[in-house]
């Protein structure tokens, strides 16, 4: 029962967020709608005991990716008049057709009872299940996989050193002057 209530609330929230993304006039509101959708889906993940995926969803998507979106929106300018003409021919009809196909696939899968690939674990069914939790991930990561985990430190060092090396490069002065004048 609890599961159903949470699902209806969060599923509804995800849908409402999705509609906001499309319908909002202000792009910042669209981004906020996307944020709502991402959070609602994260809660759904927690219900499926996929704690790690939920955490990643909040940290990476809601945290980093959305911030990037907002950066771009702010850089382009929020109050700028947008050109909303649709340039792809038959865009709406195509979108409608693809959407109907997607719904058809989901409905047919449900109708035939093809649930084999859906994980059975759920908080309500088995409160002791650890599959997909942060702990289940942490244990191999810091025991068997510790070397692979540590080796990624080298990648981070490379990223830092590489960025400095490529970004701190200055074109010779004469060169840039020639470019500016278009010679």
């Amino acid at each position: 029962m609890v599961e159903l209530v949470v699902f209806v609330l969060m599923g509804g929230g995800a849908l409402a967020g999705g509609v906001t993304v499309i319908k909002a006039r202000n792009p910042v509101y669209s981004a906020m709608g996307l944020l709502g959708t991402l959070f609602a889906i994260a809660v759904l993940y927690v219900m499926q005991l996929a704690h790690f995926v939920a955490a990643v969803q909040v940290i990476v998507y809601a945290g980093a990716v959305l911030t990037l979106f907002l950066f771009v929106i702010m850089m382009v300018g929020v109050d700028k008049e947008e050109d909303v003409r649709e340039t792809i021919p038959h865009q709406r009809r195509l979108a409608l057709a693809l959407g109907l196909i997607a719904i058809g696939i989901v409905v047919s899968l449900v109708a035939r009872g093809r649930f084999a690939w859906v994980p059975v674990a759920s908080a309500a069914a088995d409160p002791q299940a650890t599959n997909g939790t942060v702990q289940a991930l942490a244990e191999p990561m810091f025991t068997d996989w510790v070397l692979a985990f540590e080796a990624t430190a080298l990648l981070l060092t490379i990223a830092a050193a590489g960025t400095i090396a490529l970004a701190s490069f200055r074109r010779p002065v004469a060169d840039t002057a020639a470019e500016r004048t278009g010679v």
Partner: peptide, 13 residues
């Protein structure tokens, strides 16, 4: 794969 990436990404730079 990790070794391949550590080696290759440095070479890209």
């Amino acid at each position: 794969f990790l070794g391949l990436e550590i080696g290759s990404i440095s070479l890209y730079v």
